[in-house]
Simulated assay, not measured.
Amino acid sequence: MRYIAFLLGPAMLLTGPIGASSAETAVPARVKIAVFPFELEDFSAGAAYVAPDEIDREQLRLATVEARRLIAESARYQLVDVSAATEPAAKAGKLRECDGCDAKIAAALGADQSMVAIVSRITRTEYAVTYKIRDARSGALVDVKQTDLRMGANVAWSRGARWLIERRLLEQ
Score class of each variant (00 low, 15 high):
residue 135 D to V: 01
residue 75 A to P: 13
residue 86 T to D: 09
residue 137 R to F: 02
residue 140 A to V: 00
residue 74 S to W: 01
residue 30 R to Y: 08
residue 171 E to K: 14
residue 125 T to P: 10
residue 135 D to L: 07
residue 80 V to P: 08
residue 56 D to H: 13
residue 137 R to N: 11
residue 149 L to I: 04
residue 126 E to R: 15
residue 92 A to R: 14
residue 47 A to F: 09
residue 35 V to G: 09
residue 78 Q to S: 13
residue 82 V to C: 08
residue 146 Q to M: 10
residue 9 G to H: 10
residue 11 A to Q: 11
residue 99 D to M: 03
residue 69 R to D: 00
residue 159 R to A: 02
residue 135 D to N: 15
residue 150 R to S: 12
residue 118 I to Y: 06
residue 170 L to C: 02
residue 15 T to Q: 14
residue 98 C to Q: 09
residue 57 R to D: 00
residue 150 R to P: 10
residue 71 I to W: 04
residue 143 D to N: 13
residue 172 Q to I: 03
residue 96 R to S: 04
residue 25 T to M: 06
residue 130 T to F: 10
residue 59 Q to P: 03
residue 75 A to K: 14
residue 53 D to F: 09
residue 36 F to L: 02
residue 99 D to N: 15
residue 1 M to F: 13
residue 76 R to M: 07
residue 134 R to V: 03
residue 92 A to P: 02
residue 55 I to R: 11
residue 51 A to N: 09
residue 32 K to R: 12
residue 42 D to R: 15
residue 117 A to M: 05
residue 135 D to G: 04
residue 54 E to P: 05
residue 143 D to Q: 12
residue 162 R to I: 01
residue 145 K to G: 10
residue 70 L to F: 00
residue 129 V to E: 12
residue 2 R to D: 09
residue 171 E to S: 11
residue 22 S to D: 05
residue 1 M to A: 11
residue 5 A to E: 05
residue 107 A to G: 05
residue 49 Y to N: 11
residue 95 L to T: 01
residue 33 I to V: 05
residue 144 V to C: 13
residue 46 G to I: 02
residue 3 Y to F: 14
residue 28 P to K: 14
residue 169 L to F: 04
residue 49 Y to W: 12
residue 31 V to M: 02
residue 95 L to S: 00
residue 48 A to T: 05
residue 169 L to Y: 01
residue 93 G to A: 02
residue 6 F to W: 13
residue 22 S to F: 14
residue 18 I to T: 13
residue 86 T to G: 11
residue 54 E to T: 12
residue 57 R to Q: 06
residue 64 T to L: 01
residue 151 M to N: 11
residue 29 A to D: 07
residue 102 D to V: 03
